[in-house]
């Protein structure tokens, strides 16, 4: 994995707008953004309605994914390019999710929707119509997904990266004040985790920083390249952004996203928790 295989530029997307084998997918938490205007030919995925199970606390499984992508007209051999608002958080989450189910060629549009808008590039409200396909997903790849027991075992042994804001890390905030949903029972962080807010990996316009800047960022935070790494946030979308940086741009091996994240961990009974700006002891 490398920047060249994982990211595409806005120019590249413009040059491939008429390429049927390149499918643009906009993923937002605020789905109204797509309806107002999207990149011509882009398909819409709603992070919550389309990708979450709705009953179980999990994303949709293989069968539902196959139906979803078939209905949206996405084929196994298509190049899928995700982009979205919020500096590509949910696009990165969808990228990680599609990799989990084995899609071969997935990319992220560097800078996402914001960069596209700031460049004054074309947006349209026209509906996208792609003929249905028969999509076949692979079995889940748990090499990129961490579960709670593995996270507890990782305390003091693996790299744990908490990508939330410093106030959430320290336990001064459970979640942004105006967004009380999906909060955990208690505040704090997983002991021994380093705090590298996701935003440090991106420029103001939402594009990713250079490889050298990214390597220095995580090295300064004490990331040991010889160890496996687990990234987490509150609900797994910001940590997908960081997973993307570590695994897909920098190509570090054995990086997992803990999508249960703090909303799960901070609701578990009896597990170790650290408060304050320090990492805490194992």
């Amino acid at each position: 994995m490398s920047r060249e295989t994982a990211l595409v530029t806005a120019d590249w997307v413009e040059q491939n707008l008429d390429n049927d084998k390149v499918v643009l997918i906009e993923v937002d938490e605020d789905a109204s953004a797509y309806d107002k205007g999207h990149i011509p030919g882009a398909v819409k995925l709603d992070w919550k309605k389309d990708l979450q199970d709705g009953v179980r606390h999990d994303f949709i499984g293989k069968d539902k994914l196959e139906k979803l992508l078939s209905d949206k007209g996405i084929a196994n051999d298509d190049t899928v390019v995700f982009y979205g608002g919020n500096n590509n958080w949910f696009a990165a989450y969808a990228f990680w999710y599609l990799k989990y189910y084995g899609h071969t060629d997935v990319r992220l549009l560097d800078g996402g929707r914001k960069k596209w808008e700031l460049d004054s590039r074309q947006l349209t409200a026209d509906a996208t119509d792609r003929p249905a396909t028969t999509y076949s997903a692979s079995e889940p790849n748990d090499a990129i997904r961490a579960y709670r027991d593995e996270v507890i075992e990782a305390i003091g042994s693996k790299n744990l990266i908490d990508v939330r804001s410093p106030d959430e890390f320290a336990g001064r905030l459970l979640a942004p004040a105006h967004l009380p949903q999906e909060a955990a029972q208690i505040a704090g962080h997983i002991p021994t985790a380093g705090n590298v807010p996701w935003s440090k990996a991106a420029n103001d316009d939402g594009t990713f920083r250079s490889d050298d800047e990214l390597k220095a960022l995580y090295a300064d935070a004490g990331l040991d390249e010889g160890k496996d790494t687990i990234a987490y946030c509150r609900i797994g979308e910001r940590s997908s952004h960081t997973w993307f940086v570590l695994s897909e741009i920098l190509g570090y091996p054995n990086v997992k996203n803990y999508d249960g994240s703090w909303s799960e961990y901070g609701s578990l009974r009896g597990v170790p928790v650290a408060l304050g700006d320090e990492r805490g002891e194992a």
Binding site: E29, D30, N86, L179, I235
Partner: peptide
């Protein structure tokens, strides 16, 4: 900060006395 709302979150139903 999830779900960036266009124009920012609404003031409807918010007790501004407790907000900055």
């Amino acid at each position: 900060m999830c779900g960036a709302i266009q124009g920012g979150p609404s003031l409807e139903g918010v007790d501004v006395a407790n907000q900055a």
